[in-house]
């Protein structure tokens, strides 16, 4: 019976010892990934801000500009890409919308995007339909989210306004609302960018503005506080400036500020994001650290127990293990045998 228990413990010890590395290096990259059906919203605000009035083509100070950002996983599109893809990777397709609203609640601009990427590594996947505001693009680098297990290094980050990829620099480790985060910053210098296809004034289109010779320029400093286990930003800010330059639309002026503001995440969304990322972080750590190390410890304990049982089973003095001398018949007078 003791022998059987020892063998069962040994089998369990090997089971948990094997499970630990399998979980970390086989299951983790296959199971920990961005789900394709995710739906996320984010609200950012610039208080105060400078905004162009397209009616008068003059910049004015406003108390608040709100940016509503939606990311919606398109499951059908991701399955279609996976079908035509030779590799075994899981693909996520996000249909995104950045909707900018003025203080009066009216639309300032709206820019849709389609972004496809590897669900685990965050590498961009190039497929039909990849676009920004209807313009086909070929992204390099990351956008919106960092990969799981974010490293302390610079990453290539895609800027949707300029349609370019530029480095986003790791600038140190910080603590944000109790979470250890990596701080990243990217500066896009003044760059000529296309006007949004949807403008707030009827009759004013990207093409009609282009005919006047007026161009749109943009610069930004983008800041992200990224939780490294999940690669999810828990907070973001952008010091964003846009100008219209030249052309007959501006009359005798060289340039007009189209937008200027320090855009920050709204407080309730910060709390929501921190809570969500904290719970996701725990799940990822279970796969990468807590369970593998726990299983290794358990395997060691079970092995020690199995060895102890085996050693007890072999200890001399047990009736079953009696030697021939002990079993020999003794003389009745108690004298030692000759």
């Amino acid at each position: 019976m003791r022998r059987k228990a020892g063998l069962v413990l040994l089998a369990l010890a090997v089971f948990f010892a094997a499970l630990a590395p399998l979980l970390r290096w086989y299951a983790y990259p296959r199971l920990v990934k961005v789900p394709p059906d995710r739906y996320e919203t984010m609200v950012l605000e610039a208080r105060p801000a400078t905004l162009i009035d397209y009616g008068t083509m003059k910049a004015k100070k406003v108390p608040k500009v709100t940016v509503v950002q939606t990311l919606k996983g398109n499951v059908e599109a991701s399955e279609e890409i996976e079908k035509g893809d030779d590799s075994d990777r899981d693909v996520v397709v996000w249909d995104a919308l950045s909707y900018v609203q003025g203080p009066d609640g009216k639309m300032v601009s709206k820019v849709p995007e389609r972004y496809a990427f590897d669900a685990h590594t965050q590498e961009p996947v190039h497929a039909r339909g990849e676009m920004v505001d209807g313009d086909p693009v070929r992204r390099e680098g990351i956008e919106f989210k960092w990969p799981f297990g974010t490293e302390k290094r610079d990453y290539a980050y895609f800027d949707a306004q300029a349609r370019v990829t530029a480095p986003i620099h790791y600038q140190g480790t910080r603590t944000f609302r109790g979470l250890e985060v990596y701080y990243f910053e990217q500066t896009i210098p003044w760059t000529k960018v296309p006007l949004p296809r949807t403008l707030p004034v009827e009759g004013l289109t990207r093409e009609s503005v282009a005919r006047t010779g007026t161009t749109r320029w943009y610069t930004t400093v983008r800041k992200f506080w990224v939780e490294p286990v999940t690669g999810a930003p828990v907070y973001g800010e952008e010091i964003h400036k846009e100008e219209l330059r030249g052309g007959t639309l501006l009359g005798d002026r060289d340039k007009v500020t189209a937008f200027s503001g320090h855009v920050k995440m709204r407080e309730d969304y910060i709390r929501h994001t921190v809570d969500m990322v904290s719970s996701q972080r725990l799940l990822v750590l279970l796969m990468t650290s807590y369970l593998p190390w726990g299983f290794l410890g358990l395997a060691g304990l079970l092995l020690a127990l199995a060895l102890w049982l085996e050693a007890r089973g072999r200890r001399p003095g047990r009736p079953a293990a009696a030697t021939g001398a002990e079993a020999r018949p003794q003389p009745a007078d108690g004298r030692p045998p000759a």
């Binding site: 948990f16 399998l22 199971l31 394709p36 249909d95 919308l97 849709p112």
Partner: peptide
């Protein structure tokens, strides 16, 4: 047993679900 468990779990994977009916917000 360990190999069978991990291979089964990863083969089953995570359900992909469906595209959310919620709109892109305006």
């Amino acid at each position: 047993a360990a190999l069978a468990l991990v291979l089964t779990v990863t083969a089953v994977g995570v359900p992909s679900g469906g595209t959310s009916p919620k709109p892109l917000l305006t």
